[in-house]
């Protein structure tokens, strides 16, 4: 145990994989978050809150602090939060 050296966790290959995973996560969750642009049911709000939470944490991992900050604000404030700003940044990750 412990004979081999600990290496850097995030090689360029890992970072690429994380960004690809983030793009896929954005693509999957963006439609539900976009429901915040109009009237939304309680279950829509709950799903959007969870999506904002997940994307907020994931954005930090791919070093997108502005998305992380906006997502956390939307998670807390839902429709009263910076929804258009967040969606604009997320759409830039889309296909």
């Amino acid at each position: 145990m412990g004979s081999e050296a600990v290496r850097a966790a995030l090689s360029p290959k890992v970072r690429d994989a994380l960004r690809q995973a983030f793009a896929a996560e954005v693509a999957a969750r963006l439609p539900r978050l976009a429901l915040l642009e109009g009237p939304a049911s309680a279950s829509d709000l709950d799903a959007a809150r969870r999506d904002a939470h997940t994307l907020g944490s994931s954005a930090w991992v791919v070093e997108e602090p502005e998305i992380s900050r906006l997502a956390r604000a939307v998670e807390e404030q839902l429709q009263d939060g910076p929804v258009p700003e967040l969606l604009a940044l997320l759409r830039a990750w889309g296909p």
């Binding site: 995973a21 983030f22 994931s58 991992v61």
Partner: peptide, 15 residues
């Protein structure tokens, strides 16, 4: 539940 987090944690741990 996030694939990004799982990928990151795996890389972080298996370093």
């Amino acid at each position: 539940d996030s694939a990004v987090q799982r990928r990151f944690v795996r890389a972080a741990v298996e370093a």
